[in-house]
Write a protein that binds this DNA or RNA. Structure first.
Lengths: 183, 183
DNA sequence: ACCTTTTACTTCACCGATGAAATATAAGCT
DNA sequence: AGCTTATATTTCATCGGTGAAGTAAAAGGT
């Protein structure tokens, strides 16, 4: 199994070779976006692996974490979709799964009968408290060797990139539908 | 539809609130990894959108690009899996789809009959040359406002993160199976 | 030379996600 | 008050991905 660094090396070579065939290719930007996708793919992989013993996937975990962090421990499918970049269809499915396990409850909304209120249960909160602390050492290890300045820079650059991604999406919101993110 | 920046704001707030409940949470690192996942989710989304008119998904496109960049325009499913972090099962399916469209051919290997050689066709190359140039303006726009130093720093930090991710994976390769990445 | 182990890829059944359509409800307009 | 449009969520059929098992071939050991 190739390491991520090896894959990145292959990507670098591939883009160098592609420039000879397509000279206008913005190589630096192409490499950066590929890097982003590759690194976050591995991050996602790690997280899915850590969650496996609890029989949760990334989307389910993210949903639980979002509910856990809310002042009243609840949200709606619509809001959850906005935050997690999931489609409504999938949020229904995720909700069903979490309800079935007793990790959340699904109820009506007093002020809008179209809305569903999803609330994390005591069981769900206990699961969160069980899952999260063991993730800390890996999280620390991921950023081993990063100075505070490095972390600040990474944060600034990623937020700037996010801003630019919003810009384009805003410009041409003809393709805004249910935009999805890899979790 | 919430903007990425709004989602990031919600994530920031969520992590700030979660710290009150779990004080040991490494907030900076948690935010950084969340940011990585969120930004690359949007990147992926953009790319999938750009590819849709050509009836290709990200994995298919990546496979074509890899083959296009090779000196002899070919590879094997095994090597493609290593580079794209796909499973062998899925690479068979991707290969089938691309063969069916006449974008690649599938043949035997002279030196190892277990191996399959996948080669991009002239049709496939034409498709690549049709798809790629229109991606450049968006690629440039994504990094609008990034200085050369910014780009170098982002590259350095992402590669360092990749190195750290390899470290942990190497340490405990008990979970190395077919590790997959979000494309 | 033969047997065992490993490797490369494919098939099968299933999982997590999607877009389109349907249903119920609220908002807006006249 | 009634009709139209928009919103929130669910259902349905399908897509892209997975792990386990199977098949064929190569490598390694004796």
């Amino acid at each position: 199994m190739a390491s991520l660094s090896k894959c990145i090396g292959m990507m670098d070579e591939g883009i160098e070779r592609t420039i000879r065939l397509i000279p206008q290719l913005p190589a630096v930007e192409a490499k950066l976006s590929r890097l982003m996708l590759m690194v976050s793919g591995s991050l996602n992989e790690e997280l899915e692996f850590e969650l496996k013993p609890y029989k949760l996937n990334h989307s389910e975990f993210l949903t639980l974490m979002f509910l856990y962090s809310r002042p009243d421990s609840s949200s709606t499918p619509g809001e959850l979709c906005e935050f997690t970049k999931q489609g409504a269809t999938n949020m229904t499915r995720i909700g069903n799964t979490l309800v079935k396990r007793g990790l959340v409850t699904r109820g009506g909304s007093d002020d809008d009968r179209r809305r569903v209120v999803i609330r994390i249960t005591a069981t769900g909160k206990r699961l969160v408290l069980k899952i999260v602390p063991p993730l800390f050492p890996r999280l620390d290890a991921m950023f081993q060797g990063f100075s505070d300045t490095d972390k600040k820079n990474l944060s600034r650059l990623l937020r700037k990139l996010a801003h630019n991604l919003d810009q384009a999406t805003g410009d041409s919101d003809t393709h805004i539908g249910t935009m999805k993110a890899t979790k």
